[in-house]
C-alpha cells in the first residue's frame, strides 16, 4: 500500500509505502534474485538463462502505474494522492561480484544508452513529471541486495531537491543573464583546485559547496539538460568519466567505496528548463577510511550540512588517485 501524504509544514509530499517493510532483505548467499534463471534453477526476477541489460518494475515499488487507492481520504489540511509513477530496477550485469566502473567499457557505454532510453520512455508518461536515475552502493547506504543494480523512480511531481536547483538556476539566469552552471564551470576551470577530472564533454569536481568530504559532481560542459540530449559521442564521454570517478573512488582506500550516485536532469513536466544542466552527484558517506559521516541533528533536522573537510583538499586527493 503506498500513497502520497502532503506535509503542509514543508510544502512537500511524503510517500508511505507500507508493503516495503517486507521487501527482500539480504537473501541467503545461494539465492541471487537478480541473477539469470538457470535451467532447473530457482526462478529469479529475470526469466532468461542470460542477459546483457534488463530493466523491470520493482517488486516492492513506492510508485505504480496503476496505484492503489490511498488508505485514507485526506483533507484540505492534509491532502492525499495516489502514488502514481514508476519504480524500475536496472540490472546491468549478470555477475553478482561485478562493479559498474569495472565493466568492460563498451558495456558501460551501453548502460548509458539504456538510461537514456528509460528517461525518454518514462518521460512520455502523462503522470510522470520527473525521471530520477540513481544507484545505491554498499550496506552503509542501506543496500539489501548485493547484486549490483541501479534504480529509476519516475515521480508524479518534481522532487524538492531538483526543484530547488531548478529554481536557483532560473533565478540566477533572470538576475545575471547567464547560466549558473556555465559560471560554475568557468569558476572551477579558472581556479583548478576542485577539479578531479574532465574530458571534452564533462567536468568532475568536488563542489565548492560539497556537503560530503568526497562528494563529486559530474557536470555537462555544454547546455545539455537531460541524458537523452547526449549524442553517441557524448554518451561515450559520459561513460568514460563515470568509469574514471568510480575507479578513483575504489582506489582511494583500496576497497569498494559505498556511495549514492544520482542524476539530476530536465523534468518531463512540459515546462521549459533551459537554465538547468544535466549533472551527476556522488555522495560517499565515508570521511576517512573507517569513519562515516552521519546525517545527524544539523543535517537531518535543520538541513545544514557540516563538512569536516575542505573541497580543495579532498579534490586534490582524488585528483592524485590512480584510475587506469
Amino acid at each position: 500500500m503506498s500513497e502520497l501524504r502532503w506535509n503542509p509544514t514543508l510544502g512537500e509530499w511524503v510517500v508511505t509505502a507500507t508493503h516495503r517493510q517486507d521487501r527482500t532483505f539480504f537473501p541467503p548467499p545461494d539465492y541471487d534474485p537478480l541473477a539469470p534463471t538457470k535451467p532447473a534453477g530457482f526462478p529469479t526476477e529475470i526469466p532468461a538463462a542470460d542477459y546483457e541489460i534488463v530493466v523491470f518494475d520493482n517488486k516492492f515499488p513506492s510508485f505504480r502505474s496503476t496505484p492503489p487507492e490511498p488508505s485514507l481520504p485526506g483533507s484540505e489540511l492534509y491532502p492525499v494522492r495516489e502514488a502514481a509513477g514508476v519504480c524500475e530496477v536496472v540490472c546491468y550485469t549478470p555477475q553478482i561480484d561485478a562493479e559498474l566502473h569495472d565493466l568492460p567499457f563498451k558495456k558501460l557505454e551501453q548502460l548509458v544508452h539504456v538510461w537514456a532510453d528509460r528517461y525518454e520512455e518514462l518521460s512520455k508518461l502523462s503522470y510522470v513529471d520527473y525521471v530520477y536515475i540513481f544507484e545505491n552502493r554498499g550496506k552503509e547506504i542501506g543496500v539489501t541486495l548485493p547484486h549490483p543494480h541501479g534504480q529509476i523512480y519516475a515521480y508524479p511531481f518534481i522532487p524538492p531537491i531538483p526543484a530547488k536547483e531548478l529554481e536557483a538556476a532560473k533565478t540566477y539566469q533572470a538576475r545575471t543573464g547567464k547560466n549558473l552552471y556555465d559560471d560554475i564551470i568557468q569558476a572551477e576551470m579558472e581556479d583548478g583546485r576542485r577539479i578531479v577530472w574532465q574530458n571534452d564533454v564533462f567536468i568532475a569536481i568536488v563542489p565548492f559547496y560539497a556537503r560530503y568530504p568526497y562528494e563529486v559532481h559530474i557536470i555537462a560542459k555544454s547546455n545539455i539538460t537531460a541524458i537523452s540530449d547526449l549524442s553517441d559521442e557524448g554518451k561515450k564521454s559520459f561513460a568514460e568519466i563515470l568509469r574514471v570517478i568510480g575507479r578513483k573512488y575504489n582506489n582511494l582506500w583500496n576497497r569498494s567505496l559505498p556511495y549514492i550516485m544520482l542524476m539530476h536532469q530536465r523534468p518531463s513536466d512540459g515546462a521549459e528548463h533551459s537554465s538547468y544542466r544535466f549533472h551527476v552527484e556522488f555522495y560517499p558517506p565515508y570521511r576517512t577510511p573507517d569513519k562515516l559521516k552521519y546525517l545527524a541533528g544539523s543535517e537531518a533536522g535543520a538541513g545544514v550540512y557540516i563538512n569536516d573537510t575542505h573541497a580543495e583538499v579532498t579534490a586534490k586527493t582524488l585528483r592524485e588517485v590512480e584510475w587506469e
Partner: peptide
C-alpha cells in the same frame, strides 16, 4: 514482456558485442 505478476520487464540486446549465450537468451524471449 509482462512477468507472471503483471510487472513489465525489458531486455536490452547489443548484437555487436553479445556473446552466443546472451544472443540465444534474447532470441528465446
Amino acid at each position: 514482456i509482462q512477468k507472471e505478476d503483471g510487472r513489465k520487464l525489458t531486455y536490452y540486446h547489443f548484437p555487436e558485442t553479445a556473446t552466443d549465450s546472451e544472443t540465444d537468451a534474447f532470441k528465446s524471449v
